[in-house]
């Protein structure tokens, strides 16, 4: 593996769920992307856009329906569980619901030790009890919890502390890739800031590569180098964080950023997008956003726009991207 091999690569990944009466729910509808070493990719979108499903597919917690998932250049799409297991330590997940992710009947020390017991150490042999204990103390220090936390049960901690425990567990096996699904959205602002800082610190110290699945654009901006915006199962815009959030090319991204209630009195009122996200079961033909798009034209209802680069590193799936030569309003 060279520094130019993506840590994670998705090639036309699709995830379709079969519903009764022959209907199909296309949760992920043809997504290709690359995550380079050290990158922090923010995956944003509204509920039901498929961002969590995509996050799970990245780590093969869910099997994809078609397409390829490559981890560090290796195709893991169809690897058996047994062959996948040695790769698991390299890729870990942090879940949104910190309470549900921790077994309430086991002490924090046991919860964190489990991955260390299941997976062999770097020398290929089982870790000894002493190595495990040492690692547990290291992990607690890493996420800012006292060592005494190891002897306690999850219920004894606050939401923010539980999320620290989840992060510690994800880091136990020194992964290269961490996928975090809404890791701070259940937390209060003051605590959320602590966890956001923790992610930044951990990246600096451990050289991690992150994928953040989140709906809060301000949080995503704080922790991502690149952002991919999803709508109804597809990426509609992708590029450097501030390029996408401050000069959005896709009308959906523009509507999304405008709708964020900013903590500024007298800030421009949000641009209103009408209606709700259509059902992914029968998504609109043509551009998937055209039913709500304030700029939609006839062509948008017929021909599906493909993701294309409008400048280096900034891709958009729109026939008439904002700020382009097509529209000078």
């Amino acid at each position: 593996m060279t520094p130019f091999t993506p840590v994670l690569e998705l090639r036309d990944v699709r995830k379709t769920y079969r519903l009764p009466r022959g209907q199909k729910l296309k949760a992920v509808d043809g997504i290709s992307l690359r995550v380079m070493p050290g990158e922090m990719l923010g995956l944003v979108g509204e509920s039901g856009c498929g961002k969590s499903t995509l996050g799970r597919c990245m780590l093969r917690l869910d099997d994809v329906s078609s397409g390829q998932v490559l981890f560090e250049g290796r195709d893991i799409t169809t690897l058996s569980e047994r062959k996948l297991r040695p790769l698991r330590p390299g890729m870990q997940m942090v879940f949104q619901n910190s309470t549900a992710a921790l077994n309430p009947r086991r002490r924090v020390g046991d919860l964190l030790a489990e991955p260390l017991r299941v997976h062999p150490g770097p020398d290929g042999r089982r870790r000894t009890a002493a190595t495990i204990t040492a690692r547990l103390h290291e992990l607690m220090a890493l996420v800012g919890l006292p060592a005494s936390a190891l002897a306690r049960y999850p219920h004894a901690f606050s939401g923010g502390q539980r999320q620290r425990i989840n992060i510690a567990r994800a880091l136990a096996l020194s992964p290269r890739l961490v996928v975090a699904d809404e890791p701070v959205s259940a937390l209060d602002v003051s605590v959320q800031a602590q966890i956001v800082n923790l992610f930044a610190d951990l990246r600096a110290r451990l050289g991690l590569t992150y994928v953040f699945v989140a709906h809060d654009l301000a949080v995503v901006r704080q922790i991502s180098t690149r952002v991919a915006v999803m709508y109804l199962g597809a990426i509609v815009e992708c590029g450097e964080t501030d390029a996408v959030l401050h000069a959005p090319a896709h009308p959906y991204t523009a509507a999304l950023t405008a709708a964020v209630p900013r903590p500024v009195v007298g800030a421009a009122p949000a641009m209103l997008l009408r209606g709700d996200v259509p059902s992914p079961v029968n998504r609109p033909a043509g551009c998937r956003f055209h039913t709500r798009c304030p700029q939609a034209q006839v062509r948008c209802g017929v021909e599906e726009p493909l993701l294309r680069a409008i400048r280096p590193g900034h891709e958009v799936a729109c026939h008439y991207p904002l700020g382009g030569e097509h529209r000078k309003v």
């Binding site: 509204e46 509920s47 709906h215 654009l217 509507a255 999304l256 405008a258 709708a259 964020v260 209630p261 949000a270 641009m271 209103l272 997008l273 009408r274 709700d276 996200v277």
Partner: peptide, 9 residues
């Protein structure tokens, strides 16, 4: 979601 939140606000 934020776009719906904006409508309700």
């Amino acid at each position: 979601d934020v776009t719906v939140q904006a409508q309700i606000l």
